[in-house]
Write a protein that binds this DNA or RNA. Structure first.
Lengths: 323, 323
DNA sequence: CTGAAAGCGCTTACAG
DNA sequence: CTGAAAGCGCTTACAG
């Protein structure tokens, strides 16, 4: 591929002028500019962003670390972030984190301009290592980490209020036992699950751990209650896909939703909107989070301080949890 | 951040030796190696992949161009591709294509090692431009382009057989009119729609264009038939999300699925598996496509020739299209 | 307004 | 086994 040098030679000017022209900084006379443009067109010259990055120390790439892009919450987030970033001249490097010891080093080696981390596979130490290497970091996380590097910006979803709202809603609709299906494990509960437990203070509940997909949810719930006489009067599920599987398990057990058992999901995906019965769910504006992530990252790249951001989820009551 | 030079100085060796040691090529004595390792640990040295890329002319980044990552078909594909690529030391740069004239130049400027294009916003000329710049390209596409650069590898999904299978299935189950809901526009039908038309030779049908999401599908279908007495006896939908909206429209019209109207979707997402009624659909192994994309790209990067690849979809009959 | 030159951090033939 | 040196393609102070 043609380089700046080739263009300079063909145009009969110095390589420096080509740079000045291409980047529209420095002074280039109209005449020289025209000659350069002609050479660029002729050679189909495209500047090498890698060489540029090496020099200016900004790759204009934002690394997005997500647990599972197949989860609509994340795919929406990434979708929006990609657009926002593109508008600002940045590109999204996407990764589901690889549980590799060397992974952080690899990230660092790519010299990305910023990192958005929404995954639960990284610990404080790893995040801090990135931050200490002067790479701006935005974290989507709800639990506090005492020793988190102070340069990291947080986007927090306020689960505690919404969980209280859900519990109140279910209780008012006559549920005496509320069970929670969590994607995290009991040993290491995520913020959603913890908020649920807090909201249930004084009430009886149980938690089913490590369930995040529809089929898994169906099978686990069905099997858990197969031999038991009692069946819970309601379930709160970590996401809509799980809620869907949960409803199926209820039906397979010979019970009805919402008459016998009420179900609430999370994320307000079209699964919840169009399933039968329609599923009550929690809307968390993932597209807004995608936008915030990019904007905060860019502010940080440009040296501005940014505070934490709080996202307020919204309960959407549909048929699956009505009286 | 510490550079190779700093490590060399601290270890008391030459920068070249550090390179040889880090990349495990060239000879470095055990003693020198130990000194270098100590310095690396002390300085928390991470090699700069950007500088490396500039020199070796391989960024080890694969660009994935998809229409819409929110579509489960693509999110699964990307999910798997990310994993495959990571195993091979490559990273996925993700982009929903931006309809920007300069976009191809931007891609080229990033010096990516390979491009996977599955989107319908790029034309042959753009693809050819990438290919001509010596960047390996894999295209997910079913229609032929006569003037496609011969270096491009295709992954083709065989829609024509599966569409015939669907039509036969619906006809045998008593449907006398089959309507197709396409995400593409009538002026520029995609391979799925064209295969549908071919499969319908001699039968009557109609096509509703530019519908790709659940709500959109519901509203469009509902409104299209609101005033009419007749209602189609079956719908084939471009994806499961659309099929879901379609079923809703049927129900809102006061008809039943599958007794009065039969519906078939595409992609075998969990929407289809767990909706009520369960939706007949077509399984296209998007994870396999993700794997193929990465593997073919890597072979091409390593100078091997690769042929086209054909993917055979599979009809999954569920309740929504049964007698 | 334009160009020669230093330098970003690396790799790798080559000489010793 | 090790190091000095050229070079990847760019940017940008600096001198003219």
């Amino acid at each position: 591929m043609a380089s700046r040098k080739d263009v300079a030679k063909l145009a009969g000017v110095s390589p420096a002028s080509v740079s000045y022209y291409v980047n529209k900084n420095g002074y280039v006379s109209k005449k020289t500019g025209d000659k350069i443009q002609k050479a660029i067109d002729e050679l189909q010259y495209v500047p090498n962003q890698i060489a540029r990055s090496l020099k200016i120390k900004n790759t204009k790439q934002l690394l997005f670390l997500c647990n599972d892009i197949r989860n609509p919450f994340y795919s929406q987030l990434v979708y929006r972030a990609t657009k926002s970033a593109a508008n600002l001249g940045y590109t999204i490097l996407f990764s589901s984190v690889v549980d590799n010891e060397d992974y952080i080093n690899k990230i660092l080696s790519y010299q990305v301009s910023g990192v958005f981390a929404s995954n639960n596979k990284m610990d404080v130490k790893q995040i801090n290592k990135i931050a200490k290497a002067q790479v701006p970091v935005v974290l989507l996380r709800d639990l506090d980490w005492d020793d988190l590097d102070s340069s990291v910006s947080l986007i927090k979803v306020d689960f505690s209020s919404i969980m209280k709202e859900i519990v109140t809603h279910l209780t008012e609709n006559g549920c005496d036992s509320i069970h929670y299906i969590s994607s995290s494990s009991i040993n290491n509960l995520d913020a959603k699950a913890i908020s649920f437990i807090n909201a249930m203070k004084g009430k009886s509940f149980s938690i089913i751990e490590k369930v995040s997909a529809t089929k898994e949810a169906h099978d686990t719930i069905y099997n858990t209650y197969k031999e038991k006489e009692d069946f819970p009067s309601s379930f709160v599920c970590t996401n809509d896909a799980v809620a869907l599987g949960c409803i199926r398990a209820v039906i397979d057990r010979g019970l009805r939703v919402p008459e016998d058992v009420k179900v609430v999901g999370f994320d307000n995906t079209n699964i919840s909107q169009y399933s039968n019965p329609e599923i009550s769910t929690v809307d968390i504006d993932s597209e807004a989070i995608g936008d915030f992530a990019v904007n905060i990252l860019l502010d940080k790249i440009n040296g501005k301080k940014r505070d934490h951001k709080k996202i307020i989820p919204r309960l959407i009551v549909r048929k699956s949890s009505m009286k």
